[in-house]
């Protein structure tokens, strides 16, 4: 749910990066943090285990330009990808305006991708959303690794809604900002439609 503050003249939206464990959700946020102008981003917070696995969430606030005199602010969250953190994932989806599904392109992670996408749909529904309507962008990450599934295979497996999809290698930044921009556009367009 977006938050429009007429006093501070800000529009705030929440984007959640979802996907199986070790698919690169945190890496996406770290790259964005590294590359954004410090004036346009806040502190990145990672609630992680000692081995740097996400325990609860990562959080990165971004401030983009102004539209119609309102600053646009986007709060980026990741969920913990490991299967047993499902309760935390549900909590983080609360109030979400748009989702980036980060898939791991490696062939060995096919089942994990599918399971996570199904889990996303279930959890969105549990939070009262229609999983076919929530703004969604899919990122096929780790394209730089060997033994990856083809984009058409991944599309057939994960992108039944035919939403925007991007190839990425988040550790080097390929596709990271394209994915984010697409999610932001979808969200603003969705908010606009929802307001009517």
């Amino acid at each position: 749910m977006s938050f429009i503050n007429y006093s501070s003249r800000e529009i705030n939206c929440k984007i959640v990066y979802y996907g199986p464990g070790l698919c690169g959700k945190t890496t996406n946020l770290q790259y964005i943090y590294k590359r954004m102008n410090p004036d346009a981003r806040g502190k990145m917070i990672s609630l992680a285990t000692e081995t740097e696995r996400t325990l609860f969430f990562d959080f990165l606030p971004l401030t983009l330009g102004e539209v119609r005199g309102f600053k646009t602010r986007f709060h980026l969250y990741t969920v913990p990808g490991q299967v047993f953190y499902d309760a935390s994932r549900r909590l983080i989806l609360r109030g979400v305006d748009g989702v980036v599904f980060c898939a791991d392109s490696q062939l060995t992670r096919t089942d994990a991708n599918l399971e996570s996408m199904e889990n996303l749909r279930v959890n969105l529904e549990e939070q009262g959303y229609n999983p076919d309507k929530v703004p969604l962008v899919i990122q096929y990450n780790k394209r730089d690794l060997p033994n990856v599934a083809s984009v058409s295979e991944l599309h057939a497996l994960l992108n039944q809604r035919n939403v925007p999809e991007f190839e990425a290698a988040a550790s080097t930044g390929i596709g990271v900002f394209e994915t984010l921009k697409s999610a932001i556009k979808l969200i603003l367009n969705d908010l606009k439609r929802g307001a009517r």
């Binding site: 539209v67 119609r68 309102f70 908010l191 929802g194 307001a195």
Partner: peptide, 8 residues
């Protein structure tokens, strides 16, 4: 009412 959002 959406206000500013409506006008985007």
């Amino acid at each position: 009412e959406g206000g500013v959002i409506e006008e985007l």
